[in-house]
Amino acid sequence: MTTIQSILEKSGYVITDGAMGTVLFSSGLDQGDPPELWNVDYPDRVAAVHQAYYDAGAQVMLTNTFGGNRYRLMLHNAQDRVAEVNQAAAAILREVVSKNDNQAVVAGDIGPSGQVLTPYGELSFQEAKEGFAQQAEALISAGVDVIWIETMSDLEEVRAAVEGARQVSADIPVVTTMTFDTHGHTMMGVSPEQALETLTPLRPLALGGNCGNGPEEIIEVIQKMHAVDPDMTLVAKANAGIPELVKGRPVYRASPATMADYAVKSYQAGARIIGACCGSTPDHVKAISQALAAHTQR
């Protein structure tokens, strides 16, 4: 079986996929509509995105379930469909991977609740944990290899998600990344060093940064984390720059070449699991994959 560890042992680094939403919008997803419902409504289109990332060189791919927790789905009156959309998403990705000789890892994507936890907001830790456990249950029952918790800004919410996943499966590997987009911290004021120190005891398989204000920001995050613990497996999954609006449509300016450059710099900074986030396409991942192959063969 292909695992993140087995790929790391073989080649020393792992390529992940890029944006799902960005690509689905160009396949006709309407603005504001939740991409997760397409797992049920248009599974072929979701599968096509996974296949394109696989063809581009992605070795770890994330299910189309970023907003698949009950709190996010509630905003679309789909809170009763957590099991359905998450199981469908895992099945779609599992099938794509099976068709390709199981040469990639199926990661069950869990994003933030979209709410602020107590005491600053209204959502209790226990409620958050239950919501994440429910999503993890659906993903794990449908056979994901790893739970991938991303775009987090609050350490307590990460803990709620990790504990929720472990409640379902004590030995499921967990990867967790936060978004350091506010003065070098997360929105909730967490520094990269603090994230590393607080999350390490939760025994993640890997941790790091994703999303945010483009590639440069994440390289700095990786440098800081690597300085604290050179042994931790670090993840970099940057956005393809900051979007600009051109004639009413968002355009991400970072070219595949820019993202290839970012990938090598992230690797040099200490990241070993490297991919992309919002605004990226299979072309970006292909450039990242080729650049890292060339760099590590030197």
């Binding site: 602020v116 005491p119 600053y120 907001g121 800004s153 506010t182 003065h183 070098g184 911290h185 997360t186 929105m187 909730m188 004021g189």
Partner: peptide, 12 residues
């Protein structure tokens, strides 16, 4: 604004 306080402190 200057990155000394973050969202939690501002909410409180």
């Amino acid at each position: 604004r200057d990155g000394i306080l973050f969202v939690p402190e501002v909410l409180m």
